[in-house]
Design a binder for these strands. Structure first.
Lengths: 174, 174
DNA sequence: CGCATATATTTTGCACACAAAATGATAAGA
DNA sequence: TCTTATCATTTTGTGTGCAAAATATATGCG
């Protein structure tokens, strides 16, 4: 259309060609949004039997896997905002699943740990996960492949700087 | 361990084997959660230039693609809750991007339509999308493949009943 | 016509998600 | 030590996401 080869060399204006507006079904962002919400809707009824919410469950997974953590450690492991995490941990504490206490060595840090009740919830959760994967009704291989593609997307999308560390969990800090 | 072949034939208890608790990085649900939030964090700064939020943008995409819709039509197209959508549409109306009016034929329905300002936002959005895809820095093919896998996941995960209709947009209803 | 039932939308209440401001506590330097 | 910069966490405010209750309008039926 444009007689010039393309519109680049004009003033300091943007040099990126516009994109014909994609339909909803051609939006990766919508596919992510929909899939994430779909998973939530499927999973939450199972979590309800344990009495925890979806993000609360994720916190427990980290604590079960790695033991007590600082608030900031949990936030970075879960790629979760501290402003969301802080009140959430209070709710987990109110449910009697975790404790929060200032660390003696560094009073700035708050250490989150499982209570006996929080520890014992793990076995019930493992039972529930068996039921859930059965309910999902998707070959494990497919689940793993999708998971890996998502992880690759997260680690590669966006500005190339500071992409080396793929969200590693910090070592025990207590 | 268990001398019996497996624990199935005992009372009416669950017959599903428990799952060894997976680490955080082996959770598909976390991968979805993290990827969706990651996409949001990347995309929102671009949307901010247009003055809309992420879900608000999705509503506009549907309206640009298909024209005026009822509130319920939008909700099912976006797999979004009516309770979220209703106040959101008010905010879009407050921004002068859409109108909401009761339909004459069926006063129960509220029709949402683009204002001239809403229509004109489309061109600026197409420019922004060009910049965003450049910023994402991922081959288009990869994006499409991930998108299709996510769509397949949504359409196949969960109870097998009522999975035929893959979230189709309703035909014009006015 | 008048009422029970069904459909469409809004409201309410709780839990995030995130930005920005506020607190609390430690460390670094003059 | 006092001061200032830094770090960790919490608080505040707005916008969803979703369940459940409340409204509003339609439709069917006697």
């Amino acid at each position: 259309m444009n007689t010039r080869r393309n519109a680049r060399n004009r003033r300091n204006q943007t040099t990126v060609a516009p994109v014909e507006m994609p339909g909803l079904d051609n939006h990766l962002c919508f596919a992510l949004y929909a899939a994430s919400n779909h998973m939530t809707r499927l999973f939450v009824p199972f979590l309800k039997k344990l009495g925890v919410t979806y993000p609360q469950y994720l916190v427990l997974v980290v604590l079960w896997e790695r033991g007590a953590r600082g608030v900031g450690d949990l936030a970075s492991a879960l790629q979760m905002d501290l402003g969301s995490l802080s009140p959430m941990l209070k709710r987990l504490e109110a449910k009697g699943l975790v404790t929060r206490r200032r660390q003696a060595e560094d009073e700035r840090r708050v250490l989150v740990d499982l209570t006996p009740k929080g520890v014992s919830l793990r076995k019930r959760t493992e039972q529930m996960l068996g039921e859930f994967y059965c309910f999902l009704n998707i070959p494990l291989g497919e689940l793993f492949e999708l998971k890996d593609r998502l992880r690759h997307f997260v680690s590669s999308a966006g500005p190339k700087e500071a992409k080396a560390a793929p969200v590693k969990l910090p070592e025990p800090a207590f």
